[in-house]
């Protein structure tokens, strides 16, 4: 088969995001911070989210190290959720994780993901689904966590 099938995973837009990731920087004063690791490969994402008084994502940034898929996914995620409310962002995280598992969602939900919707092809590479979802998990965990600044916490569903 050779590498032709790789084109469906490593689309131009994905490679662009991994080469020049958007919002790849720390936000020292963020209201929500989290560090997540993918234990199978050692990839790390540090996600900083700054919510305003109305629970809207005022700013978001990430740092860390990972493969093309995880880096571009994080970049596309930050583009997609910037300016969104906490509830909207959580809904998008759900849409994304459903999408890469092959579950159907209304087109409007997928459109909301912007570039990130292109990662739906990752579902044909099961070993790489975790790479794509790491940053969205981080988003979900960070938003559901009490904004006490602690990292790597497991109390993800205390809510607010």
């Amino acid at each position: 088969m050779g590498l032709e099938r790789l084109n469906s995973l490593y689309r131009e837009v994905i490679l662009d995001h991994s080469d020049h990731p958007h919002h790849k920087h720390a936000l020292p004063d963020a209201t929500h911070k989290i560090t997540l690791k993918n234990p199978t490969c050692g990839d790390v994402i540090n996600l900083d989210i700054d919510l305003d008084d109305h629970d809207k994502i005022k700013d978001i940034g990430f740092t860390g190290d990972g493969c093309t898929i995880s880096q571009s996914s994080a970049s596309m995620m930050t583009d997609a959720v910037m300016g969104k409310s906490k509830e909207q962002a959580l809904h998008m995280a759900k849409t994304f994780s459903d999408m890469v598992m092959g579950k159907k969602h209304p087109q409007a939900d997928l459109d909301e993901l912007q570039d990130a919707a292109i990662l739906s092809n990752v579902m044909t590479f099961p070993a790489r689904i975790k790479c794509a979802t790491l940053s969205w998990w981080a988003l979900q965990r960070a938003l559901l966590k009490q904004p006490d600044g602690s990292v790597d916490s497991d109390d993800s569903d205390k809510g607010e």
Partner: peptide, 29 residues
């Protein structure tokens, strides 16, 4: 400039099975 996961996926497309990761040796990594 290439993450080993991307390498392993590409090699798999060529029918070549290799491992990518920390190989259960994180202090060494």
């Amino acid at each position: 400039n290439l993450h080993p996961h991307d390498v392993a996926t590409a090699l798999d497309m060529e029918g070549v099975a290799v491992r990518a990761g920390h190989h259960c040796a994180q202090p060494l990594m």
